[in-house]
Design a protein around this nucleic acid. Structure first.
Lengths: 141, 141
DNA sequence: CTACACTCTATAGTAACAATAGAGTCAAGG
DNA sequence: CCTTGACTCTATTGTTACTATAGAGTGTAG
């Protein structure tokens, strides 16, 4: 099958598939005389694996690592477990960070009711340095 | 003061300051004969405002918008409130998304105890298409 | 033979900077 | 006067995982 059909069947976009190929997550497929990529159904399984991993927000390089591990079946799978644990930890950290941000935003929001003018806006005043209020860093990552 | 001192006093990096200038968040400062940027203490306040906004994870274009609003003091401040509300909504969505991801990762993690071999790894099996398990999309944004 | 759907490569864009390269500025010390 | 070192300048590249083009070629149905 050509890349368009693979895209439809896998649910990945054509560009994503080509991107995975360039990044080495899937091997370079055979080509037709006209230089079109030709895939077997095996490619569907590879993409499915990648999609599952991406759904868990694993990075492409993490997925690449998992794929390389799959190719050495006998070795212990601690690296896999560790990767998931590490990911879990990152996610937990992000959640508490975002909860802090949520708290700060709500607090700020209460500083201003509706329909004041800009120069009396409680929010803008709070953000100004003269308010002496300091915010802790909630930027993502 | 030159950019290095401004950076130290404001807590912003030199590159960040130049970046804010290029993006139009702060105005282009005067220059010395040698083409060095020269700032007054007013710049410190501008950067403080930007830092506070960034701490709340507002984007540079949102901050730029807020700054332009500050320049029309008489107008109602609904746009400010709306921006914060919109941001709050995004944050809330991101939190529940991440909580779903956390749940999925924990569930997956339980599929494999320690010290199996790769080909018996419960996690890798679960991620493989043959497991028939489908994951919902937890990719960020 | 032509229109149309599909594919190809290569490049730019996304966010907010960090990191570097290569060059110039400036004050103090010898 | 010259050098050294600390600072600054612009411009470019890199980060992530793609999306969205542009411009060209492929393949097939009518």
């Amino acid at each position: 099958m050509k890349i368009g059909e693979l895209a439809k069947r896998s649910g990945c976009s054509i560009q994503a598939i080509r991107h995975y190929e360039k990044e080495g997550l899937i091997s370079e497929p055979a080509r037709t005389d006209g230089n079109f990529r030709i895939y077997s159904t095996g490619a569907l399984e590879k993409l499915s694996f990648i999609k599952n991993c991406r759904a868990l927000d694993l990075t492409l390089s993490e997925i690449k690592h998992l794929i390389s591990l799959q190719h050495s079946p006998g070795t212990p799978c601690e690296a896999v477990n560790d990767m998931i644990d590490a990911h879990l930890h990152i996610v937990e950290t992000r959640i508490t960070d975002l909860q802090n941000l949520q708290r700060d935003l709500k607090r700020l929001r209460h500083k201003c009711g509706r329909a004041r003018s800009i120069d009396q806006c409680g929010i803008l005043n709070e953000l100004s340095p003269k308010s002496q209020h300091t915010f802790t860093d909630n930027k993502r990552k």
